[in-house]
């Protein structure tokens, strides 16, 4: 049996559970909607919801994440064949980490990681 078949099974069962729970609440719960209930839930603040524009910091964080995460995955490949590569691999990864650290210091110095 393919090892990927259980993944499909789990996705299906999760969809069924999620759908069933949502449907159960939909049919079991009372339904009397009022205008106030349909508004966004806030504590006394004037109702100004809609989609707000958010700080660009979050965007920057996600861009940096992509860079560093790809590098992490790359390190996994090296870690798996570490014993066979020997000192050659260590030297290579040292160069790789050096470049990574230069990039990291650049990010640090340009204050991309500072939250004010």
């Amino acid at each position: 049996m393919s090892p990927y078949l259980p993944i499909l099974l789990i996705i299906l069962i999760a969809l069924v559970i999620g759908g069933a729970m949502s449907a159960l609440a939909h049919f079991c719960g009372p339904r009397n909607q009022t205008a106030a209930k349909k508004e966004p839930f806030e504590c006394g603040v004037p109702n100004s919801s809609r989609r707000e524009k958010m700080s660009v910091k979050f965007y920057l964080t996600s861009i940096l994440f992509i860079l560093f995460d790809i590098e992490t995955v790359f390190l996994y490949l090296w870690a798996r064949v570490f014993k066979t590569l020997g000192w050659f691999g260590v030297a290579e990864i040292f160069v790789f980490l050096l470049i990574l650290v230069v990039g990291y210091v650049y990010v640090l110095r340009s204050k991309a990681l500072d939250w004010d």
Partner: peptide, 27 residues
Amino acid sequence: KLIFKEESVPEDADKVFFHLAPVLSLI
């Protein structure tokens, strides 16, 4: 109790994603 509670969807919510999000975090 949670199952027998009223299910309220905000008016300007994105209906499709609102219903999909809990399942998407469960999978």
